[in-house]
């Protein structure tokens, strides 16, 4: 069924006419012109499509628009504050946490969600938080390092 839905995407109010069954992922990429969330499996198995919904990391390939009315969505494009990149974005760059980078969106979103809830996670908590996101290039150790770095920096700030 085609209907109008309202979303708050990266702090901007947006309205879309959509098929209520359509997963959020396609709305974000095709209508909201965002590049961050990616298609990887469409089945909730890989995390390439992660976004923050009301602050929590969720795979956007499984979220159908019908269930999202007025939800607060954040993608990696909306992480910067006052023009400054998010500390995790800085940390990912600093430790060069990417090879091909296809999974980077999911890793970054999961990390943001983790640090919101738990500003100084242990290694195993970091691993657990990133476990939903799949990386084929084997960059895992750097993602873990980047989260540690961002967390340390915010503790010392």
């Amino acid at each position: 069924m085609i209907e109008k839905i309202k979303l708050l995407i990266n702090d901007k109010k947006r309205e879309f006419e959509v098929d209520l069954e359509e997963p959020l992922l396609y709305i974000l990429r095709e209508d909201a012109n965002l590049y961050g969330p990616k298609y990887g499996c469409g089945m909730g198995q890989c995390g390439a499509c992660m976004v923050l919904v009301d602050g929590r990391a969720q795979p956007s390939c499984l979220l159908t628009c019908g269930n999202l009315h007025e939800a607060k969505i954040k993608t990696i494009e909306g992480l910067a504050k006052n023009g400054n990149p998010h500390p995790l974005q800085e940390a990912f760059f600093e430790v060069q946490a990417a090879q091909c980078g296809y999974c980077l969106n999911g890793m970054l979103i999961s990390a943001v969600s983790l640090l919101e809830e738990n500003p100084s996670p242990s290694i195993s908590e970091i691993k657990e938080a990133l476990n939903r996101v799949l990386c084929r290039c084997g960059t895992h150790s750097r993602f873990i390092k980047a989260v540690q770095l961002a967390s340390e920096k915010s503790q010392n700030a």
Binding site: L34, Y35, G36, K38, Y39, T75, I76, E77, L79, A80, P85, Q89, F92, F93, E94, Q96, A97, A98, G101, Y102, L104, N105, L108
Partner: peptide, 18 residues
């Protein structure tokens, strides 16, 4: 440092998919 990693981390278009 690879500058393209900064771009990716900010969600800039990078892949053929984009």
């Amino acid at each position: 440092l690879r500058e393209d990693i900064r771009k990716m981390a900010q969600g800039e278009a990078f892949f053929v998919h984009d």
